[in-house]
Amino acid sequence: MTRTALVIVAVLLLLLGLLWVFQRRLIYLPDGAPVPPAGEVIPGGRDVTFTTRDGVRLAAWYVPGEQEVTGLPTVLVTGGNAGNRRDRAPLAQTLVAQGLPVLLMDYRGYGGNSGTPTEEGLFLDALAAREFLGDRPVVYFGESLGAAVATRLALERPPAGLVLRSPFTDLAAAGRVNYPFLPVGLLLRDRFPVAERIGQVRAPVVVVYGTGDTIVPPRLSRAVAQAANASEVAVAGAGHNDLVMLNGDEVVGAVVELARRIGGSR
């Protein structure tokens, strides 16, 4: 029995060690394939590049809106842990149709960009995207994991407004939902604490979530909204990756309403 117990313990320790080493492959699911030119996907889209403070050169898409006429802010989209900017083109097209300029960025390792994603790296990527936009007013739109990136960016570079789509309180809380059999809190190297930071953001905040989300349960998003004293938009029955959570009326409406409120107050 003792020998059997030792073998079991050794196997468990080995598995935990492998999870520690390779955990970022479970967290970040980059589509690193090169993407086509912006103009082939979004009419009027432009290919742009910028360089992070640690020297990573990133490709992105910028799509002009009617900023000069409307005075509306630009929307900076920080995506979730999977896909690339091409997957978020429908969101950009819908926002641009409402007169909002959009910058679709990709993190390091995503969308043909070099580098390996980490919590610190994603923040530096978002910071470089914000610096690329200069002094204009910007609304940050953070999607899932990108909501954590946008929240940290909002502390470094305060936005005109912040929209968080399907945010979690922190990565460990989301991890416990998806991997309940693992000691997620002990294993994680990247933390992404949203709830403990969001209260320091000095900008209007809107939290959008699907009531049918099983990846980031609504209770986590509601907890973020409560910590931020934010407005909430609940999309009835929607799951985490449903199309309605990409460019549905409720999601787009939340961004447009906030942007117009900001534009009208300038």
Rank of each mutant, 00 (worst) to 15 (best):
159 P>V: 01
20 W>I: 01
28 Y>V: 01
158 P>I: 10
42 I>W: 01
222 R>W: 02
52 T>R: 00
79 G>Y: 08
250 E>C: 09
19 L>E: 03
200 Q>H: 15
150 A>P: 10
100 L>S: 09
256 V>H: 10
32 G>H: 07
117 P>N: 06
82 A>G: 15
105 M>W: 08
127 L>P: 05
144 S>H: 05
36 P>V: 12
183 P>W: 08
205 V>P: 09
236 A>L: 03
189 R>N: 12
62 Y>A: 03
90 P>K: 06
119 E>N: 14
69 V>M: 11
47 D>K: 04
233 V>S: 03
54 D>T: 07
27 I>K: 00
47 D>I: 06
116 T>D: 10
245 M>Q: 15
52 T>C: 04
104 L>M: 01
210 G>S: 12
230 A>K: 00
9 V>L: 15
239 G>Y: 09
172 A>V: 13
125 D>Q: 12
166 S>T: 15
223 A>P: 13
263 G>Y: 13
148 A>E: 06
142 G>E: 07
202 R>F: 00
180 P>A: 13
266 R>Y: 11
136 R>E: 15
234 A>M: 11
60 A>V: 11
192 F>G: 02
243 L>K: 14
114 S>P: 12
80 G>D: 03
112 G>L: 11
149 V>E: 06
101 P>C: 12
74 T>F: 00
141 F>N: 02
36 P>C: 12
90 P>Q: 03
121 G>L: 10
208 V>R: 10
200 Q>C: 00
239 G>M: 09
155 L>Y: 11
71 G>I: 13
87 D>Y: 14
92 A>F: 14
43 P>I: 14
251 V>E: 05
126 A>M: 11
123 F>V: 09
52 T>K: 09
41 V>K: 07
146 G>Y: 05
132 F>T: 06
155 L>R: 11
99 G>T: 06
74 T>G: 07
179 Y>K: 08
191 R>C: 09
221 S>M: 01
249 D>A: 15
158 P>E: 09
19 L>Q: 06
7 V>M: 01
9 V>I: 15
116 T>G: 11
194 V>E: 05
210 G>Y: 15
151 T>G: 00
24 R>M: 08
23 Q>V: 11
225 A>K: 14
228 A>Q: 11
176 R>I: 02
247 N>W: 05
51 T>C: 00
101 P>I: 10
118 T>E: 02
122 L>G: 02
170 D>E: 10
230 A>T: 09
73 P>C: 07
103 L>T: 07
35 V>S: 07
227 A>P: 07
37 P>Y: 03
215 I>W: 04
83 G>K: 09
165 R>N: 15
223 A>N: 08
218 P>Y: 00
216 V>L: 06
78 T>H: 04
2 T>F: 05
193 P>S: 10
215 I>G: 04
64 P>V: 13
10 A>M: 13
186 L>I: 01
130 R>W: 10
169 T>H: 01
78 T>K: 08
195 A>F: 00
153 L>W: 10
169 T>M: 05
224 V>R: 00
149 V>A: 06
132 F>W: 15
30 P>H: 07
10 A>P: 02
224 V>M: 03
53 R>P: 05
144 S>T: 04
14 L>G: 14
95 L>W: 13
261 R>A: 12
3 R>I: 15
38 A>Q: 05
84 N>L: 04
141 F>M: 00
204 P>E: 02
